[in-house]
């Protein structure tokens, strides 16, 4: 007998630069443990998941993260009164701050989450990677904080081109000269504030890992993927599951050091010497997490069990050589459905 659960999921934007929501929902639909009713939580009218009635049972609009925590709280409690949500799985970087802050209040009304703490969330920011590398013994490309043009001049003198100038939160620009570095510094400072980050270029093979931690340092699942085709937005359009003992070992070491609770994506690069260096930590499942499910590790299902404080077995094995290939699909939507989501905020 499967356990019946109501699960709220965000990031229904299965577009060309997709959010992970639909992949998470498909994984939960595949679960042998749970029989789920999916409540889709959408920010915009046209998030495709709203109209995918075979995957999402009911959708509600929720206020944008910038509106503040209190507005989110009010809306979720309003939805909870009607739907009795058991577990909530937020999947956007930008919304996590608010959901993390509200986790205890959600718990008090019977909504479970399994999220990092505010400081764990903060510590995995790219400005903190060097520090994290030191603690965990993980190799991280050399990184510097840039606050002034003098800092840019110094780093241009000390390092060889090209290297990366990265925004505090998003964006990376590869620069080949001091002029380009200056321009990138100004652009990224204006967009994301200070400090701007300089990261040494590491040439090599990029590989990604989707994983889940139990919050005590144990890795309950980890699947590695090599991108096969990348869109002009830098997103994987197809990829293949691979196995590399060292890569999985490094990933587990990091999860141990972070004591990470819940899903995460690690972006690694294998340098010329064959060593893995950590480029970035994304604090939620990636949009390709369904590949892990298809390979025998259902991380979203594990996350739901963790949220419900049920015992979860670590899974080591997974099928390698399985591909995912994304495709575009034109969903046909009746104007009545569009009317409902735009005028009632639900569908």
């Amino acid at each position: 007998m499967k356990i019946k659960l109501v699960i709220g999921v965000t990031a229904l934007n299965a577009i060309d630069s997709p959010g992970p929501g639909i992949a998470v929902i498909r994984s939960l639909r595949d679960s042998k443990k749970f029989d789920v009713r999916i409540i889709g939580l959408a920010y915009e009218f046209l998030e495709p998941g709203i109209f995918m009635h075979d995957l999402v049972d009911k959708s509600y609009q929720i206020p944008l993260p910038g509106t503040g925590m209190e507005a989110l709280w009010q809306r979720i409690t309003q939805i909870h009164e009607r739907e009795s949500i058991d577990v909530l799985i937020p999947n956007f970087d930008a919304e996590l701050f608010n959901f993390i802050q509200l986790a205890d209040r959600f718990k008090a009304i019977g909504i479970q989450t399994f999220l990092p703490t505010a400081s764990q969330f903060e510590n995995r920011h790219k400005t903190n990677l060097p520090q994290l590398g030191k603690i965990s013994g993980i190799a991280v490309p050399e990184t510097r904080s840039l606050n002034t043009l003098k800092d840019v001049r110094n780093v241009s003198k000390d390092w060889t081109f090209p290297f990366f100038i990265k925004g505090r939160y998003y964006d990376a620009i590869r620069v080949f000269s001091e002029e380009q570095a200056n321009a990138a510094f100004h652009k990224l400072a204006a967009a994301w504030g200070y400090p701007v980050i300089a990261q040494k270029n590491v040439s090599g093979e990029e590989v990604n890992v989707t994983a889940i931690g139990d919050g005590k340092g144990n890795t309950l699942g980890a699947v590695a993927m090599k991108k096969m085709y990348v869109t002009d937005k830098g997103k994987a359009w197809s990829g293949i599951s691979i196995a590399d003992e060292d890569l999985l070992l490094q990933s587990k070491k990091l999860i141990q050091a972070l004591r990470w609770p819940g899903g995460l994506e690690l972006e690694w690069i294998k340098d010329a010497n064959g060593n893995y260096q950590l480029l970035e930590i994304n604090p939620r499942f990636p949009a390709w997490v369904y590949l892990a499910t298809g390979c025998g590790q259902n991380h979203p299902e594990q996350l739901v069990s963790l949220a419900l404080e049920q015992p979860v077995e670590a899974i080591e094995a997974y099928e390698t050589g399985k591909l995912f290939v994304r495709f575009s699909f034109d969903l046909l939507v009746n104007i009545e459905d569009f009317e409902k989501i735009t005028t009632k905020g639900e569908l």
Partner: peptide, 15 residues
Amino acid sequence: RLNAGVTGKFGQPSV
């Protein structure tokens, strides 16, 4: 007018 990318103002608690 409803534009793509615009979020709904309906059915939500007052900001």
